[in-house]
């Protein structure tokens, strides 16, 4: 990989200052960024590791909201969010493999916004708030397409706040080689609405399946989705599955998620 400066600050303030340099890049757990650097697909002048910033690692639960520090590892979320938000913990426990979950972070996943990553579906379906070093961004305004988010250069995700739904479930059809989602569907039922977010399926990255949401808000039962079809128009087509296959999987997984959410 290309050479770069490496900085390992101890506080968010120090990290923000270190990122002011041109082409500086945040390093979360590195489980995507380091392979990217090895392939010389990125050339930052400086990497600012959040590994030493203890204040960014926490899972807190209060008043119906689960708050997770931006540099919290997937394995920590899988363990510590299990009581307050089981569906979220379950999702975190399905990312990658155990060693990857010990390094990869929620902030890194959301900042990268891989179209097949798991976390974006939980954030979007939960109507989460992405808190950065400078502002709060609603999940509905945050995801702007494949590998694209509302984050500015040098902006750090410090916290993600998830309103805890009454019922929720995540169903992932895992692509066994990469362990990313071939398709993943997160369903969350709140007092006045149901939100359904789909990852792995669309060329535009994670999206809300509004037809399914409308049907489920009327009645939260898998049967109501029988005649609701996901549009295949903008779905990913690759050697792992055609757009039509992904659209079909979206419906199947959504019904499974609703059934599993009880």
């Amino acid at each position: 990989m290309y050479d770069f400066e490496f900085e390992r600050p101890q506080t968010v303030a120090e990290a923000v200052a270190a990122l002011k340099q041109e082409d500086a890049q945040v390093l979360g757990g590195g489980q995507t960024l380091i392979p990217t650097l090895k392939q010389r697909l990125a050339m930052p002048s400086k990497l600012v590791s959040l590994g030493g910033v203890a204040e960014l690692r926490f899972v807190r639960s209060a008043g119906g909201t689960v708050c997770i520090g931006g540099a919290t590892a997937h394995a920590t979320v899988a363990a510590d969010a299990a009581a307050p938000y089981p569906a979220l913990a379950d999702l975190a426990g399905q990312i990658g493999d155990p060693a990857v979950r010990n390094r990869g972070t929620i902030g890194g996943s959301l900042a990268n916004n891989d179209p097949s990553a798991c976390y974006p579906s939980a954030a979007l379906a939960s109507g989460a708030t992405i808190v950065t070093d400078r502002r709060k961004i609603a999940a509905d305004d945050y995801f702007e397409g494949m590998f694209t988010t509302a984050l500015d250069d040098g902006e750090i995700i410090t916290e993600v706040r998830f309103p805890v739904p009454e019922r929720a479930n995540y169903q992932k059809f895992s692509q066994p080689a990469s362990r990313f989602a071939l398709v993943g569907v997160f369903v969350a039922q709140y007092a006045d609405s149901v939100r359904v977010a789909v990852t792995g399926a669309s060329d535009d990255g994670v999206f809300r399946w509004t037809d399914a949401e409308a049907a489920l808000t009327q009645r939260f039962h898998a049967d109501v989705l029988k005649d609701v079809t996901a549009p295949a128009d903008d779905m990913i087509s690759d050697l792992h599955g055609s757009a039509e296959y992904r659209a079909h999987l979206t419906g199947v997984l959504a019904r499974q998620a609703v059934a599993a959410a009880g």
Binding site: G30, I34, P35, S49, A99, V100, N102, R103
Partner: peptide, 9 residues
């Protein structure tokens, strides 16, 4: 904790 030492600095 188990980590992949090829994917960290």
């Amino acid at each position: 904790k188990a980590v992949k030492s090829c994917t960290m600095f």
